[in-house]
Simulated scan of single mutants.
Amino acid sequence: MHWHTYLWSGDGQQLKSEAPRRPAPEAGFRTSTMPPMMTGWWLLKPPSLISSTLSAPDETIAWLQSHYEESPPPPVQAEQLPLKARAEYAAEALTGGSDVVWAYWQQEAGPRFVHLAAVCCPNRVWPAIPCPVDEIRGV
């Protein structure tokens, strides 16, 4: 078991467009960098969108925390769900083989949205989706 990490940030209003976020070929899903509607669907996206592949929960939490600290939410949001609480939940979820997503508006009055995802692979919710890295290697 390992985790592929993904980072997307941009105009959160773009997320209203669901078509490119669903794995329908005609919708441009594979070419869209936007987060998919279902977390496990990240594994269907091109491997070039993978930020890192990590083999331990603590490494994965460190990745999440690092990117969270680089692009934090506004103080009011950060106080509502402190980083320590996020990390504790992530540790439990990752150890159990689950995905973790930290998604938030970066500006209180602005459109910038940050989406950090750690997707478990193989994915227990989407077991038929192959590892994108193994596909490249021909495994």
Rank of each mutant, 00 (worst) to 15 (best):
P25S: 04
P25F: 02
P25I: 00
E26Q: 06
E26P: 04
E26L: 03
R30A: 10
R30N: 04
T31H: 14
T31Q: 14
T33A: 11
T33K: 08
T33S: 13
P35D: 04
P36L: 05
M37S: 10
M37G: 06
M38A: 13
M38D: 08
G40Q: 06
W41A: 08
W41N: 05
W41Y: 13
W42S: 01
W42P: 00
W42C: 01
L43F: 02
L43E: 01
L44I: 02
L44S: 11
K45M: 01
P46V: 03
P46T: 05
P46Q: 08
I50C: 09
S51N: 11
S52N: 10
S52V: 02
S52W: 03
T53Q: 14
T53Y: 09
L54Y: 10
A56Q: 12
P57V: 02
P57Y: 06
D58T: 12
D58G: 11
D58S: 14
D58C: 11
E59N: 14
I61A: 06
I61R: 11
A62G: 08
W63L: 01
Q65L: 12
S66C: 15
E69R: 14
E70H: 15
E70S: 15
S71T: 14
S71K: 14
P72C: 07
P72T: 07
P74K: 11
P74T: 11
V76F: 15
Q77A: 14
Q77R: 12
E79G: 14
E79T: 12
Q80F: 13
Q80K: 15
Q80L: 13
P82M: 04
L83S: 11
K84L: 05
K84Q: 09
A85T: 09
R86T: 03
A87W: 01
Y89T: 02
A90T: 00
A90K: 01
A91I: 00
A91S: 12
A93K: 02
A93V: 02
L94W: 07
T95E: 08
G97H: 08
V100E: 00
V100P: 00
V101A: 03
W102A: 00
A103N: 12
A103L: 02
Y104C: 02
W105Q: 06
W105G: 10
Q106F: 06
Q106I: 00
Q106G: 12
Q107V: 09
Q107C: 12
Q107F: 13
E108M: 13
A109V: 13
A109T: 15
A109K: 15
A109N: 15
A109S: 15
A109F: 15
G110T: 02
P111F: 10
P111A: 14
R112N: 06
F113M: 08
F113N: 04
F113P: 01
V114I: 05
L116P: 00
L116V: 02
L116Q: 00
L116M: 03
A117R: 01
A117H: 04
C120F: 00
C121R: 05
P122Q: 04
P122R: 05
N123A: 09
N123G: 09
N123L: 01
V125L: 07
V125G: 04
W126R: 10
W126Y: 11
W126K: 10
A128N: 13
A128F: 10
I129N: 03
P130W: 03
